[in-house]
């Protein structure tokens, strides 16, 4: 393992301090917690809280600020934060109009956030939540823990953050979140595995020229291994899988996110977006009305990309995506 760290189990603490120092005009670390909260005046709007294991930077602290998250709660690397920490995040986010939680669908996250919700309700804070499950690589059945929450979560943060900022109520945000989640689909691939600093070695192995489709953001296994192919072939596999799921028609409007997994250069991500454009815009004749490329939901130092598509069901969703924000990572 070759990493710029000190003690492996101090990584999260030191990372949060570094982040809070570097961006102290935007955010602050709540003392004695792993919560990064925004520095804005409270104005009786719905608070928006997300979080999860660390290692997905800029998720989630990088999306804390005006127009997006009120607070983000960091767990240990790849491990869900504990209920007491999530409760601190909820309290920091509370402006008196309730708090909405964006949870990625992992057993640990769901259980810890659910316990935190119970604790918050004991303190008379209204809490609602959405469990984002956009990863189509996982079969959605009673035989699995369900689809995982991956890069699409960032679109969720942006849309709900803009809605909250414009004064939407807790129940309106809940309704919006459920609708967005239904239209949100992602799929990823890995060229090489991530190394969790606390573990010290890669989470799985891939041969030199081997890639894996459907990999999760903690290195959860995907659905197929293959020899590496040109970017356009990789994009074609993604588009084929997404089309099966989404059944689009010509002219449908979408938001697209090409997301880097941590160790894939932007150069390659832009090449990949160019292929996505050819397939979705030129061939499939979709209207990609909103586009983003970059590292949004990483998996430490995994090399790979994911593609997220959100079907824009309502013009307002586009406005929310385009609304200005003051955060580190958007």
């Amino acid at each position: 393992m070759k990493k710029i760290i000190n003690e492996p189990d101090h990584v999260v603490d030191e990372m949060l301090n570094g982040l809070a120092f570097a961006y102290d005009s935007l955010v602050t670390r709540i003392p004695e917690t792993t919560v990064i909260a925004r520095k804005v005046e409270k104005s009786n709007k719905v608070g928006l809280v997300s979080g999860g294991g660390s290692g997905h930077e800029p998720s989630h602290a990088g999306f804390v600020g005006k127009g997006m998250l009120s607070a983000a709660v960091a767990g240990q690397v790849f491990t869900s934060p504990t209920p007491d920490q999530v409760l601190e995040g909820i309290k920091a986010a509370d402006e008196g109009a309730g708090v909405f939680l964006v949870i990625k669908n992992y057993t640990g996250d769901v259980m810890n956030f659910d316990m935190a919700k119970e604790l918050a309700e004991l303190e008379d804070i209204d809490v609602e939540f959405v469990i984002v499950d956009d990863d189509i690589a996982v079969e959605d059945s009673t035989f699995t823990a369900g689809r995982r929450g991956v890069a699409g979560t960032v679109f969720m943060h942006k849309i709900l953050g803009a809605a909250a900022d414009s004064g939407a109520s807790l129940s309106e945000i809940k309704e919006l979140a459920d609708k967005v989640n239904e239209q949100l689909f992602s799929i990823g691939l890995a060229l090489s595995p991530a190394t969790n600093p606390e573990v010290g070695k890669p989470g799985f192995e891939l041969e030199d020229q081997e890639i894996e489709f459907g990999i999760g953001i903690h290195g959860e296994p995907g659905y197929r291994r293959e020899t590496l192919q040109p970017s356009k072939e990789l994009a074609k596999e993604f588009v084929t899988q997404l089309k099966k799921e989404m059944n689009w028609s010509e002219g449908d409007r979408y938001a697209a996110l090409v997301n880097g997994m941590g160790a894939t250069p932007l150069m390659e991500q832009f090449v990949f977006m160019n292929d996505v454009k050819k397939l979705l815009v030129d061939d499939e004749k979709l209207d990609l009305a909103f586009r983003k490329v970059g590292d949004y939901m990483t998996a430490i130092d995994m090399a790979g990309v994911s593609l997220t598509l959100l079907k824009i069901e309502d013009d307002q969703w586009l406005d929310y995506l385009n609304a200005p924000v003051d955060v580190i990572g958007w």
């Binding site: 767990g75 504990t82 209920p83 007491d84 920490q85 057993t107 640990g108 259980m111 810890n112």
Partner: peptide, 12 residues
């Protein structure tokens, strides 16, 4: 355990 472990096994 609930406040230190995290993951699935903490709450469990």
């Amino acid at each position: 355990l609930v406040s230190k472990v995290g993951g699935a096994s903490g709450p469990l």
